[in-house]
Computed example of a mutant assay.
Amino acid sequence: MERKNNFFLDPGGRKGRSNVSPVVEGIFLMTKDRIIPYEELDDYCEVCLEPLSYDATYDAAYCAECNEWREDACNDPSCQFCSARPKRPVNRG
């Protein structure tokens, strides 16, 4: 069974304490013991939620964990980036 985290939003018993942490507002996703701000979700794989990598040779983002490109290749056959892009970004063989 996975470990669960509970968050309590300022219960009455905590009011008046001098060591209360500053309030952080926003929308976050908590996964795999990480807290990811909503604004940064585009930098993570939509399948496994691992950080994406970038390959400058093919000018495209990919997920090393899933071994898949996260950007589609363009339809231009003369494109210097997409025309030579391999099917998988990481050679595991």
Rank of each mutant, 00 (worst) to 15 (best):
R14P: 02
T31N: 11
A60Q: 00
C79M: 07
I27F: 13
A73C: 03
K32P: 05
F28L: 07
R34G: 09
S21M: 04
C82L: 05
E2D: 13
R70L: 02
A60T: 04
F81Q: 06
G13S: 10
N75E: 14
C63H: 01
C48Y: 03
M30H: 10
E39S: 15
P86F: 07
S18E: 11
D59P: 01
P22D: 00
F8R: 08
S53W: 09
N6D: 11
C48I: 01
M1H: 12
N19E: 09
F81S: 07
E40F: 12
R92T: 12
C63K: 01
P22E: 00
Y58Q: 02
R14L: 15
C48K: 01
G93V: 07
K32G: 14
N91C: 07
V24R: 00
Y44G: 08
D76S: 10
I36S: 04
R17G: 10
L52D: 05
G93S: 10
S18W: 06
G93I: 05
C82E: 02
C66Y: 00
R70W: 03
K15H: 12
R85D: 03
E50N: 13
R70G: 01
K4L: 12
S21R: 05
P11V: 09
N5D: 11
L41N: 06
N67Q: 02
E46M: 13
R85K: 04
C48H: 02
E2G: 08
C82Q: 02
T31C: 14
N19A: 08
P51M: 08
A56F: 05
N6I: 14
P86A: 05
P77A: 03
L29Y: 11
D72H: 02
R88P: 03
C66I: 01
E71F: 04
D43K: 14
L41E: 12
R34M: 15
I35V: 15
K87H: 08
E65K: 12
S83C: 12
T57N: 15
G26M: 00
N6F: 11
K15N: 08
F7A: 13
A73S: 09
V20H: 05
N91Y: 14
D10G: 08
E2T: 09
N75F: 04
L41C: 13
E65A: 12
W69F: 00
Y58H: 13
I27Q: 12
P77Q: 02
S18C: 07
D33N: 15
Y54G: 06
G16D: 03
T57V: 13
N91V: 13
P89A: 04
L52A: 06
S83L: 09
Y38G: 07
R88N: 13
Q80T: 14
S83R: 12
L9I: 14
A56W: 05
V47S: 09
L41I: 15
L29G: 02
R14T: 11
Q80Y: 09
R85S: 03
N91A: 14
F8L: 15
E39K: 11
W69V: 01
E68W: 01
